[in-house]
């Protein structure tokens, strides 16, 4: 099931959407970074930006935004960079996981995960 609904997305269109930019700081976003709008869409804003601002009135993960917009995660990250740069969104990055040192989260965090799952 490698083929997805986005296969039909024209690469040229994705290129247009992102203004042809691919910035280094997209890497600040994880797939599960939670995005929150800090302002309402304004006149003349790019339609994808408008959609993101509307979606993220409550926190929403990058991967969910990607799914709802029907655009690959990497493209969404570029769109989010613009909004972050202009202060229109804030980003809540994952902090329990510690991918940088390849280690597990703190035992206290995992205990909380365990208890929460047990109580579902």
């Amino acid at each position: 099931m490698i083929r997805g609904p986005l296969d039909s997305e024209d690469p040229d269109r994705l290129y247009t959407v992102t203004g042809g930019r691919s910035r280094a700081d997209e890497s600040v976003f994880d797939m599960v970074t939670l995005i929150v709008s800090e302002s309402e869409p304004s006149l003349g804003m790019q339609s994808e930006h408008v959609k993101i601002l509307r979606m993220c009135r409550r926190p929403m993960a990058v991967v969910e935004i990607s799914s709802y917009l029907g655009m690959p995660v990497s493209v969404v990250k570029i769109l989010l960079c613009d909004l972050l740069d202009t202060g229109k969104i804030t980003a809540r990055h994952p902090h329990a996981a510690r991918p940088d040192n390849g280690g597990l989260p703190e035992p206290e965090t995992l205990k909380k995960v365990l208890v929460a799952l047990q109580n579902l």
């Binding site: 939670l34 409550r58 809540r92 994952p94």
Partner: peptide
Amino acid sequence: LRASASDGL
């Protein structure tokens, strides 16, 4: 999500 959601796992 709830407004307080801040940490994705």
